[in-house]
Design a protein around this nucleic acid. Structure first.
Length: 841
DNA sequence: AGCACGCCGACT
DNA sequence: GTCGGCGTGCTC
């Protein structure tokens, strides 16, 4: 038989090529595209994924595929194509894109094992700190892998020092590849191997009559005789006092059969949901549904369907559209992926899916154990789950026949993977994945990114509108009003689907407040609005945009600002502990009494944190119950739900919160939303600063007046004439879009050009700058050589966050019609490459 | 990433 | 003369 050859992408993030291997006879036929295999690579064994079979290998001498890790392919053919698209799009190695699709724990990367030799060291005094600590660690814990040393020396450049020990003969190294860390979970079971009525005649086989073991074995047999069929061993242990040894003893004598069966680790196992039925649709929903319904059908017949952008304000019934689309997709025998921003923050959305499709939903989120995640992944692959709901990573679920991809709140930043390569945007990726799969894609939001909207208009893809907020809380509000002995408000409309107006927004010019002698953070407008809300026994939300503001500490005499020694960013003052904390790296220090620069005692905190707002609020409204909703108070496991339930049940009157408040909360009794300072964030040196501010304000304003009680919004700002604030106050997306687009066109920013951001990080400031200058020279050379007339560089410059985690950061933005084209296929070394980055900070 | 090969500076 | 710096290239 001819040897078969396969092309393999090896699981080493830095290796971008593909390699050919031959398939040994004993694996012939098993190895198909998508399989996870072990292959020799240089001196080590590495994991790889088979991309395709090839007739002719690229080199004369091939090495063999060593082992097959899983008999089923781990990637579907669609996923293999999708991974290749993603690699090209993000300028990332294919292996990193493939690795997104292999569940953590199953995927393993090659590592190095470090072993301490017995021989004594001649001159221990000459060793440096890392070397001494490495030796101590190895003495204490035995052999260690590179990953473990990495954890022991965070942010330290330990490799050269350890390599020196290897050269000195103190250490030995050996490449290792760990087996997968996840496996199907098996449970032992047992069943009787003889007819139940013969159980009483086996005493001769049960050991010495009358002994304890005899008694246990006899009881075990009787238990099984009463229980026909296969039972869990633990059940037998509990009923008879026997142990595995006893059952094995019985099995050896042919009396019982031991077996194993898989136990699914299902995070939703113990939850039951009252099945929910679809509510009646509004007219707008019906029109949207007609479009989606048609698309789901034509795509199930193999015809491509362009993406949909579902532009609808908060509470306009987008989720119901998703639910219907999923239902129809399932009816066509296909599966659906639903992406949501942050699972812990949108329990309401998730619950709706679970209630509508009981038993069919697989949930992915960050709190799942590796085993749960692995089992969910395998059930998806086996076609046992029809709907996967999760964050951006859920897009990579191995569903056999994806017919629908939903991206809810598609403007959300969490859809962009900023932390590690590949730096991808799950919205763009969902569109590409849907194209590969022949699936329908629905992108839903109240505030589409202007680039996305512009893209839809250029491509003439359909934008569907749901302009009205649906009054869905009539019953809930009525119940709550009765509970508090309040009179029922007058409600417009009589149908269940009556719509609600968007809340009026009042812009308050804080400059005038200062001129009028009001030095408080609460304007007179906001103060009286709060008073009225409290008097009416309704609820308020105060929104504080922390990002970019700073509760920083500065000296009123010399002006020095206290900064993090690692990140160079202003430190945040925490009143309770009297501590200064860096919110980027976690550095903390005691609040000093004197300015470290000039020793003045006039040093104090400035700016606002949620704690400060809480304190001021309590001073001004001593009788109000105030809740704080921020990273600190929601740190516990179910703290989010707990806090929100507390507030939803009117245990508190005012909720103070940050960004987290903008996510899909649904709090009907809230009639007032106050934004402490709307222009925070507007002055970031970033092309999307205005857009982010508009999106944030629009989302926050949407929290008010979601009931027949009505509602209003107060925006406090020092820039009352800024278009982002004016248009957000009018709920006027179109006006913002037009103005923002005009700005972007004028400033040659996306979507009229495209950005690739190149980021360099170095522990030494000079080295970072030098590398940046060198890269810029190279880039200019490529631009000139390739005659890229419309492509230019922004930078090199230090980043806005010019020091993060101890690293100095420099960046270069390559701007042009196709900056990725300029860079494709070139080696960028240690540079972080981001194509179409959502921010350039 | 790891490792080999390769070409210039200070040490037994 | 060699040991060792890290630059460059390769891993099927």
């Amino acid at each position: 038989m001819n040897p078969t050859y396969v092309q393999v992408a090896v699981n080493i993030p830095q290796v971008s090529g593909v390699f050919d291997y031959h398939v040994p006879e004993d694996l012939g036929g098993e190895i198909v595209p998508g399989c996870l295999v072990v292959v020799p690579f240089g001196s080590r064994q590495v994991q790889g994924v088979v991309l395709r079979q090839v007739d002719q290998p690229q080199v004369a001498d091939t090495r063999p595929v060593n082992a097959l890790i899983d008999f089923e392919p781990v990637l579907t053919p669609i996923q293999l194509r999708f991974a290749q698209w993603l690699a090209e799009r993000t300028l990332s190695p294919l292996s990193t894109c493939i690795d997104l699709m292999v569940p953590p724990g199953l995927s393993q990367q090659a590592d190095m094992l470090y072993h301490l030799n017995d021989a004594q060291l001649s001159d221990p005094a000459r060793l440096n700190d890392v070397q001494k600590r490495t030796i101590a660690l190895l003495q204490e814990r035995g052999d260690l892998r590179g990953r473990q040393l990495e954890a022991a020396f965070p942010r330290r450049n330990w490799k050269p020092a350890v390599q020196a020990l290897v050269r000195m003969g103190v250490l030995m190294t050996r490449p290792v590849l760990l087996p997968p860390q996840v496996q199907p979970k098996m449970a032992r079971n047992v069943q009787l191997a003889i007819p139940a009525d013969q159980v009483g005649q086996q005493d001769a086989l049960l050991g010495r009559a009358g002994s304890q073991a005899f008694e246990r074995r006899q009881r075990a047999l009787r238990t099984l005789a009463d229980e026909p069929g296969v039972v869990d061993v633990t059940w037998v242990y509990a009923a008879s006092g026997s142990s595995l040894a006893d059952l094995k003893y019985l099995a050896e004598r042919g009396l019982v059969r031991l077996g194993e069966s898989e136990v699914i680790r299902d995070p939703l196992r113990n939850l039951t949901w009252a099945p929910a039925e679809a509510p009646p649709l509004t007219l707008a929903q019906q029109k949207v549904w007609e479009e989606i319904h048609r698309a789901v059908h034509t795509s199930a017949q193999g015809k491509a369907s362009p993406p949909f952008l579902l532009h609808g304000v908060t509470g306009s019934g987008k989720t119901e559209m998703y639910l219907l689309a999923v239902e129809e997709t399932l009816r066509q025998g296909r599966q659906a992926i639903v992406l949501v921003p942050e699972i812990s923050l949108t329990p309401q959305t998730v619950r709706r899916f679970q209630a509508r499709f009981p038993g069919k939903v697989g949930l992915i989120h960050s709190r799942l154990s590796q085993g749960e995640r692995y089992d969910t992944w395998r059930r998806a692959r086996a076609g046992l789950l029809q709907v996967i709901v999760g964050p951006r990573s859920a897009l990579f679920s191995p569903l056999p026949n994806v017919g629908l991809i939903v991206v809810d709140e598609c403007h959300d930043e969490s859809y962009y993977q900023a932390e590690s390569a590949p730096h991808y945007n799950a919205v763009a990726a969902a569109v590409a994945m849907a194209r590969e799969a022949g699936a329908v894609v629905m992108l839903g939001t109240a505030t589409p990114d202007v680039s996305l909207m512009y893209g839809f208009q250029l491509a003439k893809w359909k934008v569907l509108h749901l302009p009205d907020r649906i009054l869905a809380h009539r019953e809930a509000v009525r119940a709550q009003m009765n509970q508090f002995g309040l009179q029922e408000p007058v409600m417009d409309g009589s149908e269940a689907t009556a719509s609600l107006p968007l809340p009026p927004v009042k812009i308050v010019d804080m400059r005038l407040e200062l001129k009028m002698g009001n030095r408080s953070i609460f304007s007179r407008e906001l103060t009286s609005a709060l008073e009225e809300t409290l008097a009416a026994k309704q609820q308020a939300i105060l929104f504080l945009n922390r990002r970019g503001s700073a509760s920083y500490v500065f000296c009123r005499d010399c002006g020095a600002v206290l900064r993090c020694p690692r990140c160079d960013l202003p430190l945040t003052y925490h009143r309770g502990e009297d501590m200064l904390i860096c919110h980027t790296c976690g550095y903390r220090r005691k609040m000093p009494n004197k300015c470290p620069m000039c020793a003045s005692e006039h040093i104090r905190q400035y700016g606002m944190g949620t704690e400060k707002v809480e304190q001021l609020l309590k001073e001004r409204f001593p009788h109000a119950q105030v809740l704080r909703y921020d990273a600190e108070t929601t740190a516990g496991k179910n703290a989010h739900d707990l806090l929100l339930n507390l507030f939803a049940n009117h245990q508190a009157d005012i909720l103070i919160g940050t960004q987290m408040l903008t996510k899909g909360l649904d709090l009907p009794l809230v009639t007032l939303v106050g934004v402490i300072l709307a222009d925070v964030g507007l002055n970031f040196p970033d092309y999307r600063a205005a857009e982010r501010t508009f999106q944030l304000l629009t989302q926050v304003a949407g929290r008010a007046g979601r009931s027949p009680l009505g509602g209003r919004v107060v925006l406090q700002t020092f820039q009352p004439k800024h278009y982002a604030i004016l248009t957000a106050a009018r709920h006027d997306y179109q006006a913002f879009y037009a103005e923002e687009l005009a700005q972007r066109r004028r400033l040659r920013q996306p979507p009229f050009t495209r950005f690739v951001r190149l980021l360099y990080r170095d522990l030494k400031a000079a080295a970072a700058e030098e590398s940046a200058q060198e890269m810029a020279r190279q880039l200019r050379g490529w631009i000139a050589a390739g005659n890229y007339k419309q492509t230019d560089l922004i930078g090199p410059v230090p980043c806005y966050f010019n020091r993060l985690n101890g690293y100095y950061r420099w960046q270069i933005i390559v701007r042009g019609p196709d900056p990725a084209g300029l860079l494709r296929g070139r080696s960028l070394g240690d540079w972080v490459v981001e194509v179409d980055p959502p921010n350039t900070l």
